[in-house]
Design a binder for these strands. Sequence first.
DNA 1: CGTACACTCTATAGTAACTATAGAGTCAAG
DNA 2: CTTGACTCTATAGTTACTATAGAGTGTACG
Lengths: 134, 134
Amino acid sequence: MKIGELAKRSGCSIQTIRYYEREGLLSSPTRSGGNFRLYDHHAEERLMFIKRCRSLDLSLSEVRYLLTLSQAPGSRCGKVNEMVDQHIQQVEERIDELQSLHRQLHDLRNNCSENRTVEDCGIIRSLAQKKGLN
Amino acid sequence: MKIGELAKRSGCSIQTIRYYEREGLLSSPTRSGGNFRLYDHHAEERLMFIKRCRSLDLSLSEVRYLLTLSQAPGSRCGKVNEMVDQHIQQVEERIDELQSLHRQLHDLRNNCSENRTVEDCGIIRSLAQKKGLN
DNA sequence: CGTACACTCTATAGTAACTATAGAGTCAAG
DNA sequence: CTTGACTCTATAGTTACTATAGAGTGTACG
């Protein structure tokens, strides 16, 4: 199949597929007489692997690593577990950060409930003050 | 004061300060005979305003907008409230996304607890499967 | 006076993971 | 033989910085 069909089937954009190829995540496919990329089922599976990893927010270099590992028969998967554990921790940290941010934004929002002039707006005032919130 | 001192006092890097100037968030300061930037207290306050906004994850264009508004005397602050409300909603959505991601990563991690070979690793298998988790 | 050193200047490139565009070529149907 | 849908490469843009090169400034010390 040509790149357009692969894009439709996978839900990735054509540019993204070409980008993954440039980045070495997908190998260069065979080409038609007119220099069009031709993909097989195997390429589609690999692309879907990448897509699932991306939907879990793994970085492309993490994905590259997983692809390499999964194609080295007999290698141990301890590193895979480590990577996932580390990733889980990062997500937890980010959630904590965002929750703190959420509280701060709420506090900020409580400083102005009406449509005042900016001179009187508690939000602008808080942002302008040396020791606003916290 | 020169840019180095402003950087130290504000906690922003020198490059960041120059970047904010290029982006029009800070106005061009006066220059010394040797072409060094010279800042006053006013510039420092403006920089701190930007910094506080950034710590709340407001984008630079949102900050630019707030700065413009806060310097237009008599203008109404309804837009400020709107912006903050919208921002709060975005943060809430991102938290939800991350929590769902967190559950998925935990499920994934449960597929492999040992140091197996990658052929047997449940994590790799899940990622390779058409309908792995969800 | 010279020089070493800390500081500053501009311009440019790199980061992550794409997205968008221009300008050209391919291919099938009418 | 031309129209239209598709594809190709190469390049620039996105966000908010960060890092670098190569040059100039300013001051303290010998």
